[in-house]
Design a protein around this nucleic acid. Structure first.
Lengths: 108, 108
DNA sequence: GATCGATGCAACTCAAAGGTTGCATCAATT
DNA sequence: AATTGATGCAACCTTTGAGTTGCATCGATC
């Protein structure tokens, strides 16, 4: 089960591993916004924002919503929830193994 | 609160955003191991493994344990737990905002 | 239908990161 | 003390990714 981590999770972590993308996500957390709108609030060009949004969309963290002639992006919590559960499971397994090692060590 | 994500979390995500590091973590999940031991099981050199372990240790995901003349590494669940909780909180906030938007939209 | 604001695509630069080879060093055992 | 297996450091190569500029295109409004 832990081996399945690499399949879908790595792109999500890669998407979350960039400071600028977090600023994008934080802005989107205040309300859906287009690439052009985001470019007005962050110190990077619109094209850079567009690339970041593509990465985030590919990872399933945001969703494009067409509004008139612009495309707004909406943050999706579901993928974050899945990721959180996966991390919880792995962390718990590590802790379980560590506890077992300690138990055996103490029983000597 | 969501702005605090970038401070400690980004290095963790960066550490988890690499396929090889997941293979290292998976191996460590089977039991503590040294860089040399891991190099024997994975298709990369010992130096590459050492770099990965340094990244993982810097992120607080593994911990070095000296055993005789070798240094074994142990996976730590605590940092994963923290990360999972942070993701949960952010995801919940997004969902809350989305629900509110929908509620307002329906009340028109 | 002309215009204006928005997105889309392509080529380019630059720095960071994964990986390698080679050599130095350190600690435990004999 | 000599040896052997392990870690540590440094230089180097190559690929990836963030960011830019420039131009093309598309869609809504006037």
């Amino acid at each position: 089960m832990i081996a399945a981590a690499g399949d879908t999770l790595v792109p999500v972590f890669a998407a979350l591993a960039d400071e600028t993308r977090w600023r994008v996500l934080t802005e989107l957390g205040r309300g859906d916004a287009s690439a052009s709108a985001l470019a007005g609030r962050l110190p990077v060009t619109r094209q850079a924002i567009a690339k970041h949004l593509a990465v985030l969309a590919e990872a399933g963290l945001v969703e494009p919503v067409r509004v008139g002639r612009e495309i707004r992006y909406r943050p999706l919590g579901s993928r974050l929830d899945e990721t959180a559960r996966a991390l919880d499971a792995i962390g718990a397994e590590w802790d379980r193994r560590l506890a077992e090692v300690k138990r055996i060590a103490e029983s000597l």
